[in-house]
Amino acid sequence: MFLNSFTVDEEGYIHISFINKLLVEGLTLEEAKNQIQKTLNEYFKETTVVLKLVNFKVTVLGEVNSPGSFTIDKEQINLFQALGLAGGMKNFGNGKKVTLVRQTDSGSEVIPLDLTDRNILASDYYYLMPNDMIYIEPLKAKSNIDGSNFTAIAFSSATTILLIVSILLR
């Protein structure tokens, strides 16, 4: 048995020495496998093509403990596994307001998700695709808490100034 791997270039081609190049961009794994198999059958007898996605990247941003891009070395990963790679949601992460950005042939698709809804498990977006980006929004309470700290400091400062002024005026 002979196994070899090929990289898809930026233009969507794989380069096989005796075939030159073969366009696989936009094809599913099964479609690409069938196309490669058909092409190889023209050159060899009894070949078998096994096609697997070796790795791809997903990005997780927003209210997570370790935001960033992650290389996935499995054939698939789901939303919750990707969040786990990013260290999980922070205390102020809003699981009801998650945005998935997916690259398509027609551009970027922006998909709002609610991770607290059980139906997410049956969603077309449960499993991630190469180059997907997940953004976890902060809870509104976080901005209120951040704002209330500023308000408390401002009122405290104003009270202190008024107290000093009243003492000086006596």
Rank of each mutant, 00 (worst) to 15 (best):
K96A: 12
K57E: 15
E25C: 01
E109Q: 14
D73T: 15
L40P: 05
K96G: 13
I16W: 08
L29N: 12
G12Y: 06
L83E: 05
F18H: 11
S106G: 03
R118W: 00
F80N: 13
D124C: 00
K45P: 00
L128H: 08
S17T: 12
N34D: 15
Q76V: 15
E30V: 14
E25N: 08
N34G: 04
G62Q: 10
N78Q: 13
V64T: 00
S17W: 01
M89Y: 04
D117A: 14
T104Q: 10
S66I: 15
A32P: 03
T28F: 07
L79S: 06
V58W: 03
N65G: 03
A122K: 15
L113W: 01
V110L: 11
E11W: 00
M89R: 13
D114A: 07
L115A: 08
K96H: 08
I120L: 12
N94E: 05
V64Y: 05
D124E: 15
Q35M: 05
E109S: 06
I14N: 02
V98N: 00
Q103C: 01
E11P: 00
F70P: 04
G68F: 06
F70W: 10
Q37Y: 06
E10H: 04
K74V: 03
G88L: 12
S108M: 12
G68C: 07
S17Q: 13
Q37F: 04
V49L: 13
I111K: 00
S17R: 07
K57D: 15
L61V: 07
S123W: 12
A86K: 02
I120P: 04
Y125H: 13
Y13Q: 09
M89Q: 09
D117F: 11
G84N: 15
S108F: 14
